[in-house]
Amino acid sequence: MGFFSSLSSLFGLGKKDVNIVVVGLDNSGKTTILNQLKTPETRSQQIVPTVGHVVTNFSTQNLSFHAFDMAGQMKYRSTWESYFHSSQGVIFVLDSSDRLRMELLKDELMMVMEHKDVVSRGIPIVILANKMDIPGAMTASDITVALGLNLYRSGTWSIHSTCALTGDGLDKAMQQLSAEITKYMESRRT
């Protein structure tokens, strides 16, 4: 690794380190998604509710991610905003079968999307409509309407249906995120 990786990073070809924040209501599947993104041998068998946050590292083809997996419970939501400032992307995970909390979800999502550290820096947001495998789950387009996202033009956001247990839809979402982040970082450089 050593020599070649340093050589390739010299030419700007190596994997870049990026920080992302993973947020969302409790029990939406944040930790499970990140677990799914790790290489099979490093995955943990058991997922317990996160307290505070955990840093998870994984990589895609061209980026090496440090993901801050934030706790979703009410009392920890205030800690999310401390991490937007130092990150280059946000993943917002939601439970698409949870129709009851749609209004709360909308509030929390708006809080994230309109946070000054997000808006002013224009960092990309990827919304993952998780648990699509559950019967009766809302589709991505339904959720877009329910959350009023179609009225939301400013900022760079995209929505994807996923299933954290099987990994369906995750690859596509991560490709999108990588592309957005690369674009974002290039725009910052210039």
């Binding site: 996160t50 307290v51 505070g52 946050h53 840093v55 706790a71 800690t79």
Partner: peptide, 12 residues
């Protein structure tokens, strides 16, 4: 304040 948020990281 809020030192409790590193609980999961430390547990890991």
């Amino acid at each position: 304040d809020d030192v409790i948020i590193v609980t999961s990281s430390l547990t890991k």
